[in-house]
């Protein structure tokens, strides 16, 4: 077997990127960003509230955290549900202690199943980010365009209706997109998405088919409980240490390069466990003792970013 002739052809070998979703740009060559009240580091905490159905399809792949055993996988179903009942309360108590608002990335199915969570989020003044319908309804290359249009519309409209919030942020389940996800997000009034991790700061995205512009917000796939504790199997002290090191590294740059964003992604069924929650308290306690930290929602950070 040999590789086809096309394998040595490079139609997108050109200046800049090999796609038209965003432009090539070097972080350190951009103008400085100023945060409100002379803050140096915006602290953006995002919490995932997910619904994993027992009948979650494994195609084209399984979202991280999805069902593992044969049906009915009650073990993983209930483990994930623990986060939506118990874990989230523990996380909120820690956030309350430090008066930190967060952005909650939520499947619309969670809002429908657990109205309590929506009510509570609104009382706290937290932002809701639309995270698709549920963790079994993925967005992926090759999917039917009409199906995707319906999934995006359902997620955004249900969350808006149940919360009364404008819902301007989007995160695809498993941070997976099709070629057209941005178009559908834009058509539903979404202003920023969280699936692209190419940068430490927001950058502009172009939706396909002339649908217009959106922003990529730097939702972290690195400084996340899932990545550090579950994927990398680091212990809780090491989780705290990496958050501190992230802050220190970012803070060092701010004098020369302007405001930065520390993005911390949390998952209630991971970080909200009894033996783990105190380490979130330790990390946030340390962060909030640092100078010039501004805890804010994604929408607030983006607004300040655009204002310059």
């Amino acid at each position: 077997m040999t590789v086809a002739k096309e394998y040595l052809e490079y139609p997108m070998r050109r200046y800049g990127m090999d796609q038209d979703f965003y432009e090539w740009s070097i972080l350190f060559k951009r103008k400085k960003v100023k945060w409100p009240n002379d803050a140096r580091v915006a602290l953006w905490i995002t919490i995932d509230l997910e619904f994993f159905g027992l009948d979650q399809p494994a195609k084209p792949f399984k979202a991280p955290g999805g069902m593992v055993t044969s049906y009915p996988d009650l073990r993983h179903f209930t483990t994930r549900d623990y986060g939506n009942r118990v874990g989230i309360q523990r996380i909120w108590r820690v956030l309350d202690k430090y008066k930190i608002k967060s952005s909650v990335a939520m499947n619309s199915k969670v809002a429908e199943r657990y109205p309590y969570l929506v009510k509570k989020i609104n009382e706290r003044g937290d932002e809701i980010i639309a995270m698709g319908v549920d963790q079994g309804k993925l967005h992926y290359g090759g999917m039917d365009d009409a199906v995707e249009a319906a999934q995006v519309a359902e997620s955004v409209s249900v969350l808006r209706k149940l919360s009364g919030q404008p819902v301007t942020g989007w995160m695809s389940p498993a941070k997976s997109e099709s070629w057209k996800t941005l178009k559908h997000a834009k058509a539903n009034g979404i202003e920023y998405v969280c699936d692209w991790v190419a940068d430490d700061m927001p950058f502009e995205l172009t939706a396909p088919d002339g649908a217009g512009k959106l922003w990529a917000m730097p939702h972290s796939s690195e400084i996340s409980d899932r990545k550090i504790i579950i994927d990398n199997k680091h212990n809780e002290d090491e989780f705290v240490e990496q958050i501190k090191d992230q802050f220190t590294g970012l803070y060092k740059e701010t004098a020369k390069h302007g405001g930065r964003i520390l993005s911390l992604s949390l998952t209630p069924y991971i970080m909200g466990l009894h033996y783990r929650i105190k380490y979130l308290d330790i990390a946030l306690g340390w962060l909030m003792k640092q100078k010039n930290v501004w805890p804010a929602s994604g929408a607030e950070i983006l607004k300040a970013f655009k204002a310059g």
């Binding site: 394998y7 090759g142 941070k175 997976s176 692209w196 991790v197 190419a198 796939s221």
Partner: peptide, 30 residues
């Protein structure tokens, strides 16, 4: 969106694997 080699797939997810693609691009931008 590279062409497919018979022995190895470039991305674990269907193209566009935007999350991993952008993860790689982080190296050049940042």
């Amino acid at each position: 969106n590279p062409p497919i080699n018979p022995k190895r797939s470039p991305w674990p997810r269907p193209h566009p694997d935007v999350n991993l693609y952008s993860n790689r691009d982080y190296g050049n931008r940042v």
